[in-house]
Amino acid sequence: MSALEPTIALLAEMIAHPTVSDSGNRELVDVLAMRLRAEGARVRILPDASGTKANLLASLGPEGDGGLLLSGHLDVVPPGAGWTSDPFRLRRTGGRLYGRGTCDMKGFVAASVILLPQLAARGGPVHLALTHDEEVGCLGAQALSAQMAREGPRPAMAIIGEPTRMRVIEGHKGCFEYTTRFTGRDGHGSAPDRGINAAQAAARFAVRLDALASELREMRPQGVFDPPWSTISVGRVEAGVARNVIAGQAAVEWEMRPVSEAEARHVKHALGAHVEAEVAAHPGLGIETECFGEVAGLEPRRRNAARDLLLGVVGGAPGLVPFGTEAGIWQGLGLDAVLCGPGDIAQAHRPDEYLEESQLAACLDMLEALAART
Rank of each mutant, 00 (worst) to 15 (best):
G94Q: 08
S214N: 09
G286T: 06
R167D: 01
A250K: 14
A54V: 06
L70T: 10
V20M: 05
G174Q: 11
V77W: 10
L10G: 03
S71I: 00
E299I: 15
V113N: 05
L298V: 03
H188W: 13
K106S: 00
T102M: 09
A158D: 02
W254R: 07
G40F: 08
G187L: 11
G64D: 03
L32M: 06
H172F: 03
L364G: 03
V136C: 10
G195D: 03
P192E: 09
V77E: 07
A211N: 13
E135T: 09
S260M: 07
L130Y: 05
W330Y: 15
V76P: 12
V31C: 03
G293E: 13
V126D: 05
V245R: 14
P318L: 08
L333A: 13
G107H: 06
V77K: 12
L271W: 05
T19V: 03
G123L: 08
P221S: 11
L119Q: 01
H127M: 06
G99E: 03
V252F: 08
E135L: 03
G319K: 12
D365G: 14
Q347D: 02
G223P: 01
E13T: 10
A277H: 06
M219Q: 13
D75F: 00
D186H: 13
G324T: 02
W330M: 00
D86Y: 06
D336P: 08
L285H: 15
E326W: 05
R185S: 04
T179S: 13
G286S: 07
P62I: 07
P351W: 07
A129Y: 08
A317F: 06
R91Y: 01
M34A: 10
E63N: 10
A3W: 02
A337H: 09
S2I: 05
M148H: 12
L56G: 01
G312K: 11
S59Q: 14
L10N: 01
P79G: 02
I196M: 06
P6G: 06
L285E: 13
C138E: 11
A81I: 03
S85G: 12
S71L: 10
R301Q: 14
A247F: 12
P78Y: 06
D365P: 07
A149P: 14
H282V: 08
E162I: 13
V113C: 10
T374Y: 04
R208L: 01
G324A: 15
F292A: 14
S145R: 11
A251D: 07
D365M: 09
S23P: 01
S145L: 15
V314K: 14
M366V: 04
I45A: 09
L271Q: 09
S71W: 06
E276I: 11
T164D: 10
R42D: 12
H73A: 07
H127N: 13
V314M: 12
